[in-house]
Amino acid sequence: MYAIIETGGKQYRVSEGDVIRVEKLRAQEGETVELDRVLAVSDGEKLMVGQPVLENAKVTATVLKHGKGKKIIVFKYKPKKNYRRKKGHRQPYTEIKIEKIEVS
């Protein structure tokens, strides 16, 4: 059984027991979160697709940890004008473990 969920403006294909990194959520480590933006659910034989979301489906997950991704460098410059700007960025994330996919 798998589900396609949306969180943080991105879509993820998840199954029970999966560990994924999503955009930072406002939840403490060890807390349980419910993701109710479920776009589709499949049990192996039957595929249920929402328009745009399934009303009676939810995915329960546990927050494992919060962190920051790898650093990327943003470098701007204009040739021959002595203009240079160097900036780094690390995107915050939340690592969650999918516990249960429910469809009623």
Rank of each mutant, 00 (worst) to 15 (best):
N56F: 11
G50H: 09
H66G: 01
I72W: 04
N56D: 14
A27L: 01
L47K: 06
A57C: 06
L25H: 15
K68S: 09
L25Y: 08
T32H: 10
L64E: 06
V33A: 05
K68Y: 14
V41H: 04
D43Y: 13
A27S: 05
L54D: 07
T62D: 03
N56L: 07
T62H: 09
V49P: 03
E55Y: 07
I72Y: 08
V59H: 02
E29A: 08
I72T: 14
V59A: 02
D43R: 05
G67Y: 00
T32S: 06
L39H: 01
S42R: 04
R26S: 13
A27C: 06
L35K: 06
E45T: 10
G69E: 08
L35E: 06
T32W: 02
A27Y: 01
K65P: 08
E31M: 03
I72D: 11
L64N: 03
L39D: 10
K68G: 11
A57F: 09
G44T: 00
V38K: 03
L35R: 11
V49W: 04
N56C: 01
A40M: 12
L64R: 14
L47I: 10
A27Q: 04
G44F: 01
G67H: 04
L47G: 03
A57Q: 02
L54C: 05
K70Q: 07
G30P: 13
L64C: 01
S42N: 09
D36F: 10
G44V: 07
L25R: 09
L35M: 15
T62P: 07
L64F: 09
K46S: 06
R26A: 13
K65Q: 14
S42M: 00
E31S: 08
M48F: 07
E55K: 10
S42T: 06
V59W: 02
D43W: 04
A27M: 06
K71R: 13
G44L: 01
T32G: 03
N56R: 11
E29S: 15
Q28L: 15
D43T: 12
L35A: 07
Q28N: 15
E34N: 14
K71G: 11
G69Y: 06
V49Q: 01
H66K: 00
P52H: 02
Q28I: 11
V33Y: 02
H66L: 03
S42V: 08
L25C: 11
K68D: 11
E45A: 07
L25Q: 01
K71C: 07
S42I: 05
V63M: 00
E55W: 06
E31W: 04
P52V: 05
K71W: 09
G30N: 08
V59G: 04
E34W: 12
E55H: 06
K58Y: 12
L64Y: 06
E31K: 10
P52G: 00
V38M: 01
E31C: 03
E29Q: 13
L39M: 11
V33L: 05
M48E: 12
K65A: 07
Q51H: 15
E34R: 08
V33I: 15
K70T: 13
T62A: 11
Q28G: 10
P52F: 00
